[in-house]
Design a binder for these strands. Sequence first.
DNA 1: CCTATATAACTGGTATTACCAGTTGACAGA
DNA 2: TCTGTCAACTGGTAATACCAGTTATATAGG
Lengths: 241, 241
Amino acid sequence: MMNSKTAPFKPVATRKIYQYILEQFVNLVSTGVLKPGDKIPSERELAEIFSVSRPSVREALRVLEIIGLIDIQPGGGAYLKEMELGPFLSVIAPLLFSHENFELELLELRELVEMRAAELLPQTLTEEMLVPMRAALSDMRKALEENDKEAGALADIAFHRALVLMSDSFILQKTLELIVSLFEHSVRGGRSVVLERHEDAEQLMKEHQAIYDALLSNDREKARGLLGSHLQMVRNLYICP
Amino acid sequence: MMNSKTAPFKPVATRKIYQYILEQFVNLVSTGVLKPGDKIPSERELAEIFSVSRPSVREALRVLEIIGLIDIQPGGGAYLKEMELGPFLSVIAPLLFSHENFELELLELRELVEMRAAELLPQTLTEEMLVPMRAALSDMRKALEENDKEAGALADIAFHRALVLMSDSFILQKTLELIVSLFEHSVRGGRSVVLERHEDAEQLMKEHQAIYDALLSNDREKARGLLGSHLQMVRNLYICP
DNA sequence: CCTATATAACTGGTATTACCAGTTGACAGA
DNA sequence: TCTGTCAACTGGTAATACCAGTTATATAGG
């Protein structure tokens, strides 16, 4: 065998065709040339454009589908969308959730993220910044009145999303999205997010309202304290439902 | 168009063939039937086993490759491995790093994770628990003497990995892995992890040593404080290199 | 007998072709 | 105008072939 010292050559990287196609797509998306909603040419057209066979194109599209960058409608076509990790997570979820206590640890991580987001809130909160949070709050109130637990859970998530959004930290937002997605893919996820007892939902609603009020009066410290106890209560609800 | 209220039917979910294959693989891995190192039957065999065509098998394998669950050697075969997010991240990295300050925010998230891990350390630290950390420390010392910056960076990561490992929090470990992987895929990543100035490396080394010493004497509070200032310094080094 | 080389039987990568099932839109008939 | 049909798409799947590698075996040389 030839020693690397005698032959100072570097291995020639041989990438597969689908990787080149993938790279082009990702680059076009990240540079903004391709935007969500855009329609992707048909597989046959792409094969011709890239001068490759249709299977190669399909492998690239398969990956784009898994990373949640395109939506493929059989008979229709493929459309770009805002990247979402759902499809990917639904594949690897069984691997993650085989670990004991994973969901509880997820909640703890969420606590960490949101408490940090609360620290990073801007000095002064304008009325405008609070709009998404207020919307989530009113949604939650309506859901509570109509006893629509599904909508209530969604509004709950929207509230916390709105909070992290105000922190203006890209990575905290992404991390929260990841946590939420993971929770949705958990075994108990679908049910545990939806509160069974009406009084619990009402209690959570009040806590959200209190946090919002504190933020409205620009008392960030108070809001952070309320958020902390709120998250702790959510965790308790999860442990003993 | 038929209203959903007049027709209480639910859409018939039509899953694609590759998804069924994918599901079987993931389930077999998560239940431990298939383990890392196992060789996967050839594409032709799998096609026969599943009674599908080879392209369908290939699409499933393509996804398994992207999620980093198998290693495909052209001409050789496909082997299962411990799941790693590298291949997946290398695809979506351009999408994430198009955001300004993403790397800095990554460091901040790491700070959050490690500080939390330091909180979760067990009450009493046995000699055994500290073995990985001590190993990383000695690696770092050796790398410093030999002026091997590459090895030094690796040992640095290993040190922090060892710290989070002691927290016994699965999700914190996974989150740190994610952060490290993301950093490796960043544009500056490869270079910025490697310190240029020798005196900086020596300084970091001393701080690591101090953290280790504090843990060895079971002074968790002191260790946590040292870790905090250490991480802050790393961030400063990153901002003004 | 042992080693080295050549050969054969694999492997995955890619291309080609074909057919099916579903969607879509235009067009003709009521 | 509405409705049904039909043609031209779309993606999903299959079958087949060939190439370029690897691996194992067998064979020829020492």
